[in-house]
Amino acid sequence: MPVMSQAVLYQYLALGAVLFVLGLIGFVARRNMILIFLSTEIMFQGVAVILIAFSRYWMNMDGQSFVIFLLTIAAAEASLALGLVILLFRRRETLDVDVWSEMQG
């Protein structure tokens, strides 16, 4: 069936939401900086599957194009984030994000 039904779309959306929230939990619960960034990558994946499902649903390529941009952002973020992680690790010899809390009020 070339055209996807709404019911099918919803299952993909639900999967995307679940992945997104799992990433969110990892982002706020873990202390390891690398894992925090890995969690954001999970969130990216959740969004990507939603976009591609929409692309399939509407039978056009916009969703897939967005995923290309999303991958670009993910790559840029990963390079900068890992650079920062290395820099911060050099300063304090730890990956614990709670060590960096100078912004407290």
Binding site: V28, I36, V97, S101, E102, G105
Partner: peptide
């Protein structure tokens, strides 16, 4: 409200969610 500004990323993230 100062107490909410812990400087820890986690609580800001939870606040956002």
């Amino acid at each position: 409200l100062k107490a909410t500004q812990s400087g820890r990323l986690r609580y800001y993230g939870i606040g956002m969610i």
